[in-house]
């Protein structure tokens, strides 16, 4: 049936798919290949002292890793950090704050949103330095300065016990803006008549949020959860500048642990094994989230 003209038209129609090729080549060389490399090197004893000679040592990096206290500690801290900072702090609090913002006066909403967004827009290096000076105990940082001038006792926010909460706080501070924007957009998309109807019913505000609005935000929630968890899992700069993983490893997130293993202990094989574990966590989490999208 197809005539030559038709075939030519068909080709013309499909020629546009060639545009995909350069992009995919670029992605494969600089993005996908390093993913492969990190798996490959994780099975070797490659070291920074000599990167051209290494031998394959099977799973022994992983075995050593799961035996080491440092790694167990780091894994625990990372998961706790994800749970508190990303899921509770940014996603959950973020959705509530976004809802509260929608019921306030226009200019008030603008000012508060802007302040939260400024934090989000702050480059992480600056944020790390700022938070260090804000939380510092010795020398007296901003918070302790105000605490002591109001007659309260100074608090060491960066001690082995408290530093983990400090980095969660700093991370919520920098990430909240992103969630709020997503939720503000989501709430706008809700059919106003539904919210109006809930007012008519005389539903209490909190019930209204959890029973009516929260479920309608499902799409925003999943998008937000997916991106926020992955961003938080990859957090390095802010925490590295703020605590460098210390004191005594109490804020040693997997990323920082990986960096130290590679560039202080010079064990690149080990560091790649840590990297692979980060990647696997990311894959597991995103598969779970993506399943929700498919259901929809």
């Amino acid at each position: 049936m197809q005539t030559a003209i038709n075939r030519k038209l068909n080709f013309k129609k499909n020629a546009i798919f060639l545009i995909l090729i350069p992009t995919f080549i670029y992605l494969i060389i600089f993005f996908i290949y390093p993913i492969y490399l990190s798996f490959k090197y994780s099975f070797t004893n490659i070291s920074l002292y000599d990167i051209s000679h290494y031998t394959y040592i099977g799973f022994s990096n992983y075995v050593d890793l799961f035996k080491s206290h440092g790694f167990q500690n780091s894994l625990y801290i990372t998961l706790l950090f994800l749970l508190v900072s990303a899921i509770f702090g940014q996603m959950f609090l973020g959705s509530i704050i976004a809802y509260l913002l929608t019921i306030t006066q226009k200019y008030f909403k603008l000012i508060v949103t802007t302040i939260i967004l400024i934090a989000w827009a702050t480059p992480q290096v600056t944020a790390g330095i700022m938070w260090y000076s804000t939380l510092s105990y010795i020398p007296t940082g901003t918070i302790n300065f105000f605490l002591s001038s109001f007659g309260f006792k100074s608090i060491n926010f960066l001690s082995t016990k408290t530093a983990i909460y400090s980095i969660m706080l700093a991370n919520i501070w920098i990430g909240l803006g992103f969630s709020i924007l997503i939720f503000l957009g989501g709430i706008q998309n809700i059919n106003p008549s539904i919210i109006k109807a809930s007012y008519m019913d005389g539903t209490k505000p909190f019930t209204r949020f959890f029973a009516i609005i929260f479920p309608l935000l499902k799409k925003s929630i999943i998008t937000d959860l997916l991106l926020i968890t992955l961003f938080t899992l990859g957090t390095f700069t802010l925490i590295y500048v703020l605590t460098a993983g210390g004191p005594a490893g109490s804020t040693n997130l997997l990323t920082i642990y990986q960096y130290h293993t590679a560039f202080s202990l010079f064990s690149l094989g080990f560091a790649n094994a840590i990297g692979v574990i980060i990647i696997l966590i990311a894959i597991v989490l995103s598969t779970i989230y993506l399943r929700f999208i498919k259901v929809e």
């Binding site: 440092g70 082995t160 210390g246 005594a248 490893g249 109490s250 130290h260 202080s264 202990l265 010079f266």
Partner: peptide
């Protein structure tokens, strides 16, 4: 040496923070 120095720092902070006893820090 840089590796050893880094391991020393970890041992020091583990002892100083009270996370580990001297002997367990040394074995780490």
């Amino acid at each position: 040496y840089p590796t050893v120095s880094s391991a020393l720092q970890t041992a020091m902070s583990d002892v100083v923070s009270g996370h580990e006893s001297v002997s367990s820090a040394l074995s780490a």
